[in-house]
């Protein structure tokens, strides 16, 4: 750990936060975390000499405002490495009670954070917890999606910034049971495979510098937990701009609802721009289509 601290910027940030945490440990939400990079060597020296045992100790994990019984396991598995802090800038919108446990809409808005590298969403009490991971490259730190819930559960969303810190937000959703273990609606039709990947999509401009893009692709998103139906789901979506640069990468997992409906907010210029969406499922089927963002309307 100490060796690592000397090498990596992420590590140094972690060390700083470790000292800070002793003060804020009992706080449920840390509203502001500042990182002072030039004090790194001193911190390292201090930690290495005085607390060699601590260097291998696990991270201190703040208490969970949603009091999830799975919280520590979720952090270990899905939010590894850096410091974990609850942060009110990670806004998770979800219904208090799910109208339909197969399609529960969740929106994550972390646009107030900068240097976001990764957004990871989990449903703690789902048999498969990991819902999705988004890496916004040329897009705002925002994602909307729908999820299947097996029972009432806390949702945790970790937003990792480039300093390695996991900024956490979440919600608690009450739900009727069975969202993950029932067969997909598609299987009521015997030709469902024919429509695999068929897409409805829309883009509109939200600001001179960003757009809102929603795509809905036909896919059963089988979890493998319904009797006799193996796991089969859309697991990768990549959005690129006209120059081939990545706008956003999404890794989807089993809990994402049938016919995945995803909203992201690409950063764009003021002129018309055509983005391309490439999706792939666990069977290697690939789907791709272009989406055009209109130019800023003339005043």
């Amino acid at each position: 750990m100490c060796g690592l601290l000397g090498k990596s910027a992420n590590g140094t940030a972690n060390a700083m936060l470790a000292t800070k945490r002793t003060i804020s440990l009992r706080q449920r939400f840390v509203t502001r975390v500042s990182v002072v990079k030039n004090s790194v060597p001193v911190v390292c020296l201090f930690l290495c000499l005085i607390f060699p045992a601590l260097s291998h100790a696990s991270r201190d994990i703040p208490a969970d405002p949603f009091e999830s019984v799975m919280w520590k396991l979720m952090v270990e598995r899905h939010f590894p490495g850096g410091e974990v802090v609850f942060d009110s800038r990670v806004k998770v919108s979800a219904p208090k009670s799910a109208e339909n446990q197969f399609h529960v809409p969740i929106t994550v808005d972390a646009t107030e954070l900068s240097d976001v590298e990764e957004i990871v969403a989990v449903a703690d009490l789902n048999p498969i917890a990991h819902i999705l991971t988004v890496r916004p490259k040329k897009s705002l730190s925002f994602v909307g999606f729908r999820v299947k819930l097996q029972q009432a559960t806390p949702i945790h969303v970790g937003v990792r910034t480039s300093d390695g810190v996991w900024h956490m937000g979440g919600a608690y959703i009450d739900a009727a049971g069975g969202g993950c273990t029932a067969p997909a609606m598609a299987h009521g039709m015997n030709n469902w495979m024919k429509t695999l990947g068929k897409t409805r999509a829309s883009t509109r401009r939200e600001s001179p510098l960003s757009a809102r893009m929603t795509i809905r692709m036909r896919h059963p998103m089988d979890t493998g937990l319904a009797a006799g139906i193996p796991a089969f789901f859309m697991n990768q979506i990549t959005v690129q701009d006209a120059a081939g640069e990545t706008v956003a990468e999404l890794d989807l997992y089993e809990p994402v609802s049938e016919n995945p409906t995803i909203t992201i907010k690409p950063k764009v210029g003021q002129v018309e721009e055509t983005l391309s969406v490439l999706a792939r499922d666990t069977e290697g089927n690939e789907f791709g289509f272009p989406l055009t963002v209109p130019a800023v309307a003339a005043q």
């Binding site: 030709n191 495979m193 193996p230 796991a231 089969f232 069977e283």
Partner: peptide
Amino acid sequence: YDARLPEG
């Protein structure tokens, strides 16, 4: 690995 086979 379980291939997802179509109906029919």
